[in-house]
Design a protein around this nucleic acid. Structure first.
Lengths: 205, 205
DNA sequence: TCTCACAGTGTACAGTCGTGCACTCAAAAT
DNA sequence: ATTTTGAGTGCACGACTGTACACTGTGAGA
């Protein structure tokens, strides 16, 4: 393994350690030494990768943003391929949350809590998320000649629901995920119905 | 001023200082000394009031819970007295959030972020909040002979929306509050409509 | 009036923190 | 083969942390 790859690997360990540790008390409670220790390097070695903790923080936000964009791309493709589109999207969300719990913990926690820098950065990403959902819904509504006036509001409401209720996935054992997904889907359907989407009969599981 | 009142006053300063300071980086990032300093007493004096920081934390959660219960009582009474019930409740929420920004910052931040203890404590309170909203809606639906099956889901969705979108009130200048309230009301109405509530024509402002 | 209780002080100590500096030593460049 | 680079080390420093201990001064009860 070459030198750049070695460096990259250490860098990843730092990032992952920061994510894992921030789950306990929030990112704001982390210390540089703690992260370095967890990553198996000296405290001073930290500076070969980041200027300070804030810079690491920005990288974490980018990481969250990236995952969020992958998520919406995934949800969109599932969205087109099959019926039960809400279900497909919600399940995509839950898959991601379950795959990268640390990232989602950071996203959910720092969005409303953390420092100002964190909040504005994350808000930007979630606004993008809302905008894309809004576009998808609008395209669908136009195709079916339904009114589109309520759609931006519906999109924002849906994202609020999915993030807030969906946060539970992080503390639920796997076998209860399905029930949680059903609940979210039910709630999203209420919003869609309120916004004028005629829903196919909800399928029982 | 008697001695017990003196003590109580110092205790309040500690609590308020903890709230104010936790706004910056989250409660997990606070130090005992920092709080004591901000309150104008010595670090060791802290122990006359709380065993440690965790105990202070529990008190803060109680404080949040109390405010939340006052809020719902207020919302309920406004709810009964006038038309535009959603508006009345949402405005009650925003008043409280604006009145006690530190408490709401804590609520929003630690609900999904903070430590496990915080999360479970706050979840309990919010579940109560959802249950009471659900009761109110159900009573209303029953009186109007509407179906009630969707109501628990609608209540959960509404609370998710109000807390998530409503969080913005903490970073918005006062003159934009009205616009934010309108947005939340619009979104809540979507849910209510979806759950089968016939809405009076939304009033323009 | 005297005495106790106790909120708040001041000092001390061991541990952790962020960071500066001089270092090693292996991979890459010459 | 020799030199250069830079990831990671080790030590030192002053600042800050939580907490133990002995203290002071004042309000309240005897």
């Amino acid at each position: 393994m070459g030198r750049p790859e070695q460096k990259e690997q250490t860098r990843r360990r730092l990032i992952d350690a920061a994510l894992a540790l921030s789950a306990a008390q929030g990112f704001g409670a982390l210390s540089l030494r703690e992260i370095a220790r967890e990553s198996g390097i000296t405290a001073t070695g930290f500076y070969r990768h980041f200027r300070d903790l804030d810079e690491l923080g920005l990288v974490l936000v980018d990481e969250v943003a990236l995952t969020l964009r992958q998520l919406i791309r995934e949800a969109r493709s599932r969205f087109r391929e099959q019926g039960g589109r809400t279900r497909a999207s919600v399940e995509a969300f839950m898959d991601y949350a379950h795959q990268k719990p640390h990232l989602f913990r950071l996203l959910l926690g720092e969005r409303l809590g953390g420092s100002t820098a964190f909040r504005t950065a994350l808000r930007k990403e979630i606004d993008r998320f809302v905008a894309e959902l809004s576009d998808d819904l609008e395209a669908q509504a136009r195709a079916a000649k339904q009114p589109t006036a309520d759609i931006p509001f519906a999109a924002e409401a849906i994202v609020a629901i999915v993030f807030s209720v969906g946060a539970e996935v992080l503390e639920l054992p796997r076998h209860r995920h399905q029930g949680l997904a059903d609940r979210i889907i039910k709630e999203v359907h209420l919003v869609l119905k309120g916004a004028g989407f005629p829903l196919a009969r909800a399928r029982k599981r």
